[in-house]
């Protein structure tokens, strides 16, 4: 089934077309949700809610840009809305949380790099992780992130700086990347 057929069928609420569209994009979108979530189960909940919005808003898609990108934006916004229901993003990581990260990282096995990096991202505290995902991977600017998370733009910037430093350090320690002279930019007990 071509993308056009899936699109047209899904708009007409044809179950076969909807399933085909879901089968094509759900693996990558679950990967997106997984980066934002604390567990696979939470990621699947985000995916389900995201795809409900995708199918209900599909008639608004205007073929301007790739369908995958359009779906991805809806999924990302769904993830953010779900996270916002439970958490505040002005909190920064505390020392005990940072120490805990270093204990946990030993449990990350050597496997495919993409998976390793995603697991490292998921080790970050919620606020750091969310801002890093939105800025570095999803391509939103700090002004947009501040609006999405209802925080100050300066908070977004500072959280990203700390998240980036923390992630770099984890990646170097795990020997996923080499960066001579990398510095740890947060205090350890």
């Amino acid at each position: 089934m071509t993308e056009e057929q899936m699109l047209a069928g899904s708009i007409k609420k044809n179950a076969t077309a909807q399933e085909a569209l879901y089968a094509r994009y759900s693996p990558k979108m679950l990967g997106v949700c997984y980066r934002f979530s604390k567990s696979r189960e939470d990621a699947e909940d985000m995916l389900q809610e995201g795809f409900i919005k995708v199918f209900s808003q599909l008639h608004q898609y205007r073929n301007e840009g790739a369908l995958e990108g359009w779906i991805r934006r809806i999924i990302v916004h769904t993830c953010i809305n779900i996270i916002k229901k439970n958490k505040k993003f002005n909190d920064t990581v505390d020392i005990s949380n940072a120490a805990f990260l270093y204990q946990r990282e030993d449990y990350i096995p050597s496997i495919l790099q993409a998976k390793q990096i995603v697991e490292c991202i998921r080790m970050l505290p919620l606020g750091y992780r969310t801002v890093l995902n939105l800025y570095a991977i999803e391509g939103y600017v700090h002004k947009e992130i501040a609006s999405m998370l209802e925080i100050e733009e300066s908070t977004s910037r500072s959280q990203y700086t700390r998240a980036k430093a923390m992630l770099e350090d984890i990646l170097i320690k795990k020997k996923i990347i080499d960066k001579p002279g990398a510095k740890i930019s947060f205090a350890l007990p």
């Binding site: 990558k28 795809f51 993409a114 990096i117 570095a136």
Partner: peptide, 24 residues
């Protein structure tokens, strides 16, 4: 980061589609 995670995929369990189908 973007390039490294671009093609990262995970396969959802069947219950996600079942719930989604029932909702749609």
């Amino acid at each position: 980061l973007k390039e490294s995670t671009e093609d990262f995929k995970m396969y959802p369990s069947h219950k996600v589609w079942t719930s989604l189908y029932n909702n749609l």
